[in-house]
């Protein structure tokens, strides 16, 4: 085994010269995609489960729509968001919920399991950033279909906003006016997308923070689900909540940046700068969650047995 001799030299294996400097970074997306593929093939083994979950996801979505519709049928708007605007908001929330259910939630649930069972030990010995690996390892596609319903709801709401020329208490948006469909419209779509991505990252950071408790309270199997009801707060307009909570949702628990911020951008209720604010908030919470993760890991490696 001549080949082995070089590897046993006790030094890091030298890489071939031609590899570009960013090559090691490429392994991260590759790993994420590979995991996604594996999870999909695993999920396909349990078809009944898959379709049951897909159907249930659609049903839940419809149910909260009934709630919103009943309110709107009596009042016409919720906290200044009329029916089309509510559809954009709810659709946006649904897209985020579907994506979070696909990649964030399964991984966070697994994380609590890894810590409880000590399987984290094995992951810690892998030459890869453990937080990253733990965050992209498990995918679940059963609920992802909801994103399509969400998209449809957004399109529906947007169409009716345009039809009524803004309508209700929503400020008519020049960006969305058919006459000026050129760059401003693109700008509001762009800020929608940017704040949507920011919202996703923010959800990830908050969910991770909520799950880190497992490092201290081991006997909490349900911890991975703790964030689910918290996230659901973002389904409704933030301005519908009492002032004290509103303040909290704009600062310490920034759920205002989840569904409301992208929706406002799309409806022309916020300036494109709002999207940048979303990004900053998401970045800040990503940093906080990273610090929290490192802190928890230090606790783990000094306390676990």
């Amino acid at each position: 085994m001549r080949y082995r001799k070089t590897a046993t030299a006790g030094k890091p294996t030298s890489k071939p010269m031609w590899k570009p400097a960013f090559a090691p970074l490429l392994k991260y997306p590759r790993l994420a995609f590979r995991s996604a593929g594996l999870c999909l093939s695993r999920e396909m083994q349990y078809r009944l489960h898959f379709w049951g979950n897909t159907f249930a996801g659609v049903l839940w979505t419809g149910m909260y729509l009934v709630f919103i519709e009943v309110i709107l049928s009596h009042t016409g708007s919720i906290a200044g968001w009329d029916r089309p605007a509510m559809y954009v908001l709810y659709g946006t929330y649904m897209i985020l919920e579907a994506v979070a259910g696909m990649i964030i939630m399964p991984n966070m649930i697994k994380l609590t399991e890894y810590v409880r069972t000590g399987e984290l030990d094995l992951l810690l010995t892998k030459p890869i950033d453990t937080q990253f690996y733990l965050s992209v390892r498990h995918w679940e596609f059963a609920g992802t279909g909801r994103a399509l319903i969400g998209l449809t709801a957004v399109a529906y709401g947007l169409k009716h906003t345009l039809a009524s020329g803004g309508g209700g208490s929503v400020l008519p948006s020049p960006a969305l006016h058919p006459a000026t469909l050129a760059s401003p419209a693109i700008l509001s779509w762009l800020s929608y997308l940017v704040s949507l991505v920011a919202a996703f990252l923010l959800l990830y950071a908050l969910w991770l923070l909520s799950v880190l408790i497992i490092f201290w309270v081991i006997k909490a199997e349900g911890l991975g689900y703790l964030f689910v009801p918290i996230m659901q707060i973002a389904r409704y307009p933030i301005s519908a909540y009492p002032p004290l909570l509103q303040a909290a949702f704009r600062t310490v628990l920034p759920l205002a940046f989840v569904a409301a911020a992208p929706s406002s951008a799309l409806l022309g209720r916020a300036t494109p700068a709002g999207a940048l604010v979303s990004l900053v908030v998401a970045g800040l919470f990503l940093l906080i969650s990273r610090a929290g993760w490192l802190f928890a890991l230090r606790h783990y490696s000094s306390a676990s047995s």
Binding site: P12, T13, T117, E119, D121, L122, L123, T125, P127, I128
Partner: peptide, 17 residues
């Protein structure tokens, strides 16, 4: 350090990767 982790391996009888 990744350079070390690439050169070691851990098998645990009670835990599975």
């Amino acid at each position: 350090e990744k350079s070390l982790l690439k050169q070691i391996a851990l098998v645990m009888g009670q835990k599975s990767q």
